[in-house]
Simulated scan of single mutants.
Amino acid sequence: MARRKKVYEGKAKILYEGPEPGTLIQYYKDDGQLDAVPPQAAVEGKGVLNNRLSEFFMSGLNGIGVPTHFIKRLNMREQVVRMAEIMPLEIVVRNYAAGAMTERLGLPLGTPLPRPIVEYYFKDEKLGNPMVSEEHIVAFNWGNQQDLDDIIALSLRVNDFLSGVMLGVGVRLADFRLEVGRVWEGDFMRLIVADEISPDSCRLWDIRGLDLSERAAQGHEPIPMANVYTELARRLGVLPTNVTHNTKPTLIN
């Protein structure tokens, strides 16, 4: 079998040329993502679980009419995805105050937001992925006003879906990060959800225990989700039977 041509390698994934024109093979590594929310360490078997979890979420979004790049899962670590022109933006949707928002606005960690808030960050690690406004995006031609309207609509639909799914298994979705890509169908261009949806790109809190408002009133932080990869896959019913760590992922030094 001919060797696949590598197209791109990031912290958590490798992209190879796909089996058909306009497709890619996305391979999930076990490496951690330092820019995840929150940062994730390298975990044995993480790539297998993220492959299954992203398949679950992307398939669910496709099923309700939210377009994604996901086509099908090939094996334990690989899936076929649609090739897209990735916008140089990270879109963060926040439901609760956490991370940088608590620092910027002085909000207590875990404060429910009055409505989901969509933020934009310019994808440049050398600059620290700075937060940008819609004015920056239009001025520097990273997207136009129609793109921004579509991103907002897409992001909020993803948020509704993910929040509902997570709530159903006892998990609170504090915030998450999306990447969006452009695809062309003839002369028609549309935006789709790309990259992945997994614990590497979500901040998840376990609902078990005191209510968030009660914990905040008592000076306690929200409960982080323990063993997030394995536990989320187990709750969603997508935990592979041949993953070796049945209880707790093994951290790689």
Score class of each variant (00 low, 15 high):
25 I>D: 00
135 E>L: 14
227 N>V: 10
103 E>S: 12
29 K>M: 01
203 R>E: 14
61 L>G: 03
221 E>C: 10
228 V>C: 05
177 R>P: 01
82 R>F: 07
229 Y>I: 05
202 C>F: 11
170 G>P: 01
77 R>W: 07
6 K>L: 06
39 P>I: 08
103 E>Y: 07
180 V>N: 02
108 P>G: 03
165 V>G: 05
84 A>T: 08
237 G>W: 14
251 L>V: 14
126 K>Y: 14
203 R>F: 14
65 G>V: 03
10 G>Y: 09
242 N>T: 14
139 A>Q: 08
71 I>S: 03
106 G>H: 11
80 V>D: 12
173 L>M: 02
169 V>K: 12
179 E>W: 09
10 G>S: 06
192 I>D: 05
179 E>D: 12
163 S>W: 12
253 N>H: 02
220 H>T: 05
234 R>Y: 00
231 E>D: 15
118 V>A: 10
26 Q>D: 13
117 I>N: 07
78 E>Y: 04
195 D>M: 02
225 M>A: 00
17 E>K: 04
105 L>Y: 13
38 P>Q: 12
37 V>G: 03
130 P>F: 02
213 S>A: 12
153 A>W: 11
142 W>P: 00
87 M>H: 12
103 E>K: 15
191 L>G: 05
102 T>Y: 01
177 R>D: 01
168 G>C: 15
2 A>Y: 13
129 N>S: 13
141 N>I: 10
219 G>H: 09
41 A>I: 11
173 L>I: 03
242 N>C: 06
